[in-house]
Amino acid sequence: MKIKIMISALLLAMTSLTASEFIGYKGLTKELKAEAKKNGTFATAADVKEALKSKDWLVADVRTMEEWAGAHIPGSVRIGRQAPEKALALHVLDENNKFIKPNIIIVCNTASRAAIEAMSIKKLGFENVKIYGIEYWIDDCNPVETGYSSKSNKHGTKNKFGAFLAEHCYKK
């Protein structure tokens, strides 16, 4: 009986030690975004605008379909987070699986999910991977598009609302 108690105590102690090393979502994303700002991989609105014009950059949004439909950067593509490598292949590779867009800016609401996604996307072979939060785009009064329509958001069919600015951009 004493051996069981000692083993249980030892396991509990070991679990406590490893649990203290766990970094939660907020801590991890805060750390990753700070690192991106420090090393220059946190994109600016100017970076996004240049990437949208460039033939070797892709602006890819990892937000949900509902978030994308609510507002997205015109010219960006939605790849989601479930299987981004499959969606990316459609936009960045030619028929011989060679990169035609070796650079990417990953977008989400606040750049938190983008920071996490950037870790795995870097391993796919992209030359430059930057992160960006659409909130910065909106706050800087850049236009966003919506996919909502009068047909219960059927991917923007029928009455698309088109590009719009945040309300604060219209105030004088």
Rank of each mutant, 00 (worst) to 15 (best):
K38V: 05
K33R: 10
P74K: 00
I79K: 00
K160E: 09
L124P: 06
T146L: 03
A69M: 04
A43E: 06
K37A: 15
H91R: 02
F42G: 09
D56W: 05
F161K: 14
K151F: 10
N142M: 04
D56F: 00
K38L: 15
N96V: 03
E85R: 07
G147I: 03
A71R: 07
I131T: 13
E117I: 07
M119D: 14
N97P: 00
E117C: 07
V107Y: 06
F161Y: 11
V77Q: 03
S149K: 01
A118H: 09
G125R: 06
Q82C: 06
G70P: 00
A114E: 04
K160M: 10
A71W: 11
F42L: 05
G70R: 11
G147R: 03
E95Q: 12
S152Q: 06
S149A: 05
E35R: 09
A43Y: 04
K101F: 14
V107R: 04
P84V: 04
Y148Q: 08
V48S: 00
D139V: 03
I131N: 06
S76Q: 01
N96A: 13
S54G: 00
K160G: 14
W68S: 02
G70M: 08
A71L: 12
H91E: 07
N128M: 06
C108M: 15
A83M: 10
A46D: 14
I105M: 11
W137T: 05
R113Y: 15
E145W: 01
S112T: 09
G133W: 00
W68Q: 00
I73C: 02
K101P: 01
K37C: 07
